[in-house]
Amino acid sequence: MLELRLVQGSLLKKVLESIKELVTDANFDCSSTGFSLQAMDSSHVALVALLLRSEGFEHYRCDRNMSMGMNLNNMAKMLKCAGNDDIITIKADDGGDTVTFMFESPTQDKISDFEMKLMDIDSEHLGIPEAEYHAIVKMPSSEFARICRDLSSIGDTVVISVTKEGVKFSTKGDIGSANIVCRQNTSVDKPEEATVIDMNEPVSLTFALRYMNSFTKATPLSNTVSISLSNELPVVVEYKIAEMGYVRFYLAPKIEE
């Protein structure tokens, strides 16, 4: 038996909105640690890793480890029916073939339950080693979203370069080219507005903007984003989910043939 009660139900709504474009079907894994997911996009170029820790739920009951295959578009459709202030409870029976989402309005005067069919998904789990990154850039998530959107109107790929000078986002296309440099600025009024660059070694990597733009759907989850880069490794774009965990996107770089 599984019963997970999330007071801030809007978080789950935002999580689904952030990943449903990238991944169609995925297994949600439930254990004593929390509610998690790891899934690749259909071309195996990008991966999303979600963790919502058990401590972040008001009530968390998971009698045995469970893996529930869901179509993320259908799940998003159901969660869209929850109000932004609603409490969301996820319920499932061991060995059952459905999951129930229960929505309670804050004043408890409206209670809805939506039952969704589960599906069998052959998922390929990747082992992601802990890595020391050459550079980690933390910046406002809205700024990162703006940069990806702006550059994608010029080109298809972005070169992200980190040096002592700052982090540079560059693109080239048929109509011309663009460079956006963000310097470290830790002297801003609010910490979430700061750009912080932690660099051990200069790094420069090329990525498809289409995926980066898809990752920025997670912007409503967090005021800041952290971008971890190492030469010759996939980038990690992480949005922390307050008090609960994270959504991490991994993207394989474009490399010389």
Binding site: H44, V45, E124, G127, P129, A252, P253, I255
Partner: peptide, 14 residues
């Protein structure tokens, strides 16, 4: 020209 790499080139399948 650069080619899009796949995640399997970096991470192992479990």
């Amino acid at each position: 020209a650069k080619k899009q790499s796949k995640l399997s080139a970096f991470f192992t399948m479990r």
